[in-house]
Design a protein around this nucleic acid. Structure first.
Lengths: 228, 228
DNA sequence: TTCATACTTCGATGCTAACCGAAGCATCGA
DNA sequence: TCGATGCTTCGGTTAGCATCGAAGTATGAA
């Protein structure tokens, strides 16, 4: 008896408020130091260190030493997807950490989901990519079409680099605000990077929100037209 | 600051071993009494009662009084999907409640995922439905085609009853053993019910495993051929 | 009415884990 | 070499919560 995976351990890891705050902060995609994470969680450095080692032992985060700093980040895409789906569930049930603040609309419009674009814009982008037949497939098995590959290359995305890695190129991620899928995977990451590199959008400091510039809005609308 | 949904509360709810065991038991799809749940969790009735009221307050389960029994079940499909995705994550990281037992192969082949079919057979079924163009759509936005609707009706499924409810007809659910999607939603539920009603398969007692009969295997293979 | 079953509530206990102060290690700059 | 910064480890405290015994409520059967 007691067959199957043990969800209690992961639940307990995420279930502590301090750890949950750290993980949510790391959903911003940036690697953060222990001091920064302690700050966002509102705890001392010692306590944060203890939490971080637990999260690392559980495989949720990974650390990278750089000089006298230690940068922590989510271990991989799977962790990001799991956290986003948890957020979707929580948001739908009314579990919010604070009454919805002024930043909320910006977050719902466009935000970083670990390493790709989420929110209304993220969902619209996937919709458009599917309508334009850049991406096909049902369920979670998305794949890039031949014409899609051409279009992405024309945008300046190095597809050979994406396919070389073991990570899936296209994945779906359940959006917590829209309750629909947006594009994750290495292609999703590459597209967000593209937007930021071209100056079409920029990240807000201390928030997951992504703010598009005027030309960014236009280019985005041109690249990803809404299906009629 | 501290924008966004609060994942800590849900994590804490799932994070207790006793509660996690109860939830996993309820993933079998059958409504269970407090006494039964206390048994599977290995705790006394009082403790179980306390846990159950917490889970209900958190919106994870719902109860239905019937005579002097109280039957508990997962609150809705969303809870099932969340738990399954948590299990997928846990299984992938090696969080198992016991070393993989003899029941494990049967579970991986075919099992109940709250109210629909999961495991190898569940994934194969969705693959086939997509290949046969019964279901189309990318990402999580699946929909039934016209020819698909005819086929389902021919099988004896009352589609009008399915569409009448507010629940989505087709949804994807990430399979923890296969790490690919299978079919959830009211159609997924109707199909599992069909298999059981026709005697093609039956549920094992005290397990999520589903065992197909000889004719059941044949009918299943005929209805859902593997894409070439 | 009376007893039995199913479950909840109350109260007390005990254990775990989050927390912080203080001290210890590692890295960098001067 | 020395101090400063960033982080970990250790030890002790505290608070929360899971747990169970005992008593209370509801439903059904005799």
């Amino acid at each position: 008896m007691k067959e199957g995976p043990d969800i209690a351990q992961i639940g307990a890891l995420i279930g502590d408020p301090a750890r949950a705050n750290m993980l949510t902060a790391l959903m911003g995609g940036k690697a953060l130091t222990a001091t920064e994470l302690a700050g966002t969680a509102g705890i001392t450095l010692q306590t944060a260190s203890s939490h971080l080692s637990k999260l690392e032992a559980g495989g949720l985060i990974s650390q990278r030493k750089q000089g006298r700093h230690r940068y922590f980040a989510l271990a991989d895409d799977d962790v990001g997807l799991l956290l986003e789906s948890l957020m979707g569930f929580a948001a739908h049930r009314g579990f919010t950490r604070h009454r919805t603040g002024p930043k909320d609309p910006a977050l719902r419009k466009a935000r970083v989901c670990y390493n790709h674009l989420a929110g209304d814009y993220g969902v619209r982008m996937l919709d458009s990519l599917v309508a334009e037949e850049v991406i096909t497939g049902a369920g979670d098995d998305l794949s890039l079409t031949d014409t899609g590959a051409e279009k992405m290359t024309a945008l300046g995305i190095d597809l050979s680099a994406l396919t070389r890695s073991r990570r899936p190129v296209c994945r779906t991620c359940l959006d917590w605000s829209e309750r629909r899928s947006h594009l994750a995977g290495s292609l999703g990451q590459a597209l967000l990077t593209l937007f930021l590199d071209k100056g079409w959008a920029r990240r807000e400091t201390d928030s997951r929100a992504v703010r598009f510039t005027g030309t960014g809005e236009k280019e985005f609308a041109k690249l990803f037209p809404l299906p009629a």
